[in-house]
Design a protein around this nucleic acid. Structure first.
Lengths: 244, 244
DNA sequence: CGATTGTTTGAGGAATATCAATATGTGTGG
DNA sequence: CCACACATATTGATATTCCTCAAACAATCG
């Protein structure tokens, strides 16, 4: 019984985040061809790496449960957290160019992923034009996401960047039909700080500030958004010109 | 005579930056098929837009002469310069996902571009797998470039970011077999400042500082790199911890 | 429950933004 | 070709954000 139930769940067609994931816009036949190549729901322990910067591309991974961070290290040893990823997100896209992973993906908490061997995926690419265009679209989105983050880093102050991240997480929860008034900052403050280009102390202070203004309410890693409009205002504020 | 000479130059196979551009890694037959779709060396006046954010994707553009900047504007009206582009660079890649341009491309100086109608290009994509993989690689590079810039924005101080940009421009000149000890900052200070997430005054001061240290020598927009090693050191310096 | 790791709070300082003034460059009409 | 007007770049003085360092507090794990 349990085994049967699991088998049923282990298919894109029954996945609650398929609309965010690779299958989106594929027809049922195409999806079943895709499914035949996937190994579903492989569990990943918190702290484990899915792949590391420099690794040869062997597979793409779709998150089915939990969350991940990606990071790059440059020649000088500087590390930058590049993003946080949730169920339905695809990991490994940045390896499609050079066939080599350009970042390291690490599980933030216990997680599970669906593994898409690249060999088989590449075969499907020529046979399924819609899969190719889907992959291109996902790469384009990754590009756009990076550019949004660049805009935040260049044009917004600490409060604006943090508010932007909270709204981003909120929106992504909404896309997963989860309560978008609550977000979970499960990653370490240090990772969040690195991602946002600020110090952990500043994160604390800004969160405290937003809470004291009645915009947020937090308990532990859980952050409740009380005043969405105000948060949007803060997120849109340009750098170095606080409107208080 | 002149016309003949121009005709000969108007082909990827005779282009001095073909190794950076789309044809790279294509064989002669494939290149000639590509060439047949291109309209070469269309001139663009300084300040003109090649395409604007929101425009439908009609073509990709390869720069044959001059330089361009790209910029995005977000919902709050904040503008971010996303990059600067030189001969051999391809413009419009970020439209491949949504079939809509995600940024605006503007000529910094009088320039010329080769135009690749997307319709025809898309047709070639299915026929020439090497072209598809080339395009994917270029998208991957765009992604990596954005990530390098994100790292600079998050981890480096003003001097580090500016030094990083100078080295970036220098390296790109080297790839074009140009003198890599000289770079040209042809864009306005305001664009440079926006791109680097700082103010024009800070650019002036940092450039002045680097010059007073004997690392740079500038006259007008031309910047000569006198001490490459020192510039690398500055570029690698982390934010907020200057090593003087 | 102690040790270790991660988070928050406080005081002071450094980097860089802002504002103001000057200098330099660029285009235009006479 | 010059002179004027306007745009752009530099320099100086001050203000502000956010980092740094230090310490207390909280959570996690054996």
């Amino acid at each position: 019984m349990v085994a049967t139930a699991r088998r049923i769940q282990q298919a894109c067609s029954h996945c609650s985040v398929a609309h965010l994931c690779l299958p989106y816009s594929l027809d049922p036949v195409e999806i079943s061809r895709l499914e035949s190549q996937i190994s579903f729901d492989r569990s990943v322990t918190a702290g484990d790496q899915l792949f590391a910067q420099g690794d040869q591309l062997k597979a793409l991974y779709a998150i089915s449960k939990g969350s991940f961070k990606t990071a790059v290290v440059d020649a000088n040893g500087l590390e930058q957290i590049m993003g946080f990823y949730f169920p339905g997100d695809l990991l490994g896209l940045d390896a499609l160019g050079e066939q080599t992973h350009q970042c390291t993906a690490t599980a933030i908490e216990n997680a599970a992923v669906c593994r898409l061997p690249f060999h088989q995926l590449e075969g499907l690419l020529t046979q399924l034009p819609s899969l190719r265009s889907r992959l291109m679209r996902l790469m384009g989105q990754a590009l756009t996401d990076d550019e949004q983050q660049l805009l935040a880093m260049g044009q917004k102050n600490s409060e604006g960047r943090l508010a932007t991240l909270l709204l981003n997480f909120s929106r992504r929860r909404a896309m997963r039909n989860l309560d978008s008034t609550t977000v979970y900052l499960n990653m370490k403050r240090a990772d969040l700080a690195n991602y946002l280009g600020m110090r952990v102390e500043t994160i604390s202070r800004v969160l405290g500030h937003l809470q004291s203004q009645g915009i947020l309410d937090r308990k532990r890693k859980e952050v409740k958004i009380l005043d969405l409009a105000a948060l949007h205002t803060r997120a849109g504020s340009t750098a170095w010109v606080a409107d208080d």
